[in-house]
Amino acid sequence: MGVNGGHARLPCGTDLLALVQQVSDGPPPADPEHQAGCVHCRRSLARIRSTLDDVRGLASERVVAPPDLARRVMRRLRGEQARVAVSASARGRTSVNQAIVAQVAQRAALDVPEVVFASALMTDPEAGGSVRVEVRLVVAYGPALERVAGAVREHIIGDVAAVTGLLVEDVDVRIDDLS
């Protein structure tokens, strides 16, 4: 059945679907003179307009996501990440989630003023006690990219050690873009 399929007609013969189209998308009526004088058409147009106004009213209502939707999604996804051992003793082992190492590294990179975007990944989770980090950056336009890279490397090594106790053996800094 097409848009102009022959269902739902008014007593005057006008196709209701055509009236709906006219109100929503604005093509001019096929028979403006009839429409101007026809009580059925005018009453129907008023109904269509008022309902579509209410649709727009509902559409403009603010809908906020449940407060913990994002947190629950992320907790689930972080929980699936591999863990890396920090220490082991007679009293138990400590390990951290790889996602935490990446998070600490990313924030550490963003602490360097020239860094405007940072994306960090922990690679090589098996390395006993030490880890590798790869960080991709967008850096503010300016001189001394090598100095920025060096500062990022130091921040990451320092923060990851301070927060997780893990030794970062290698930081691969990739500057992807300047802003």
Partner: peptide
């Protein structure tokens, strides 16, 4: 685009930002 690129490489922090940014329209 930047965030999607990072998330595709496995960056959950980038995906976290995407989730927060798009959760309201997706939920609605």
């Amino acid at each position: 685009r930047l965030l999607v690129g990072a998330a595709r490489r496995g960056d959950l922090e980038a995906f976290d930002v995407l989730v927060r940014r798009h959760q309201a329209p997706v939920y609605r």
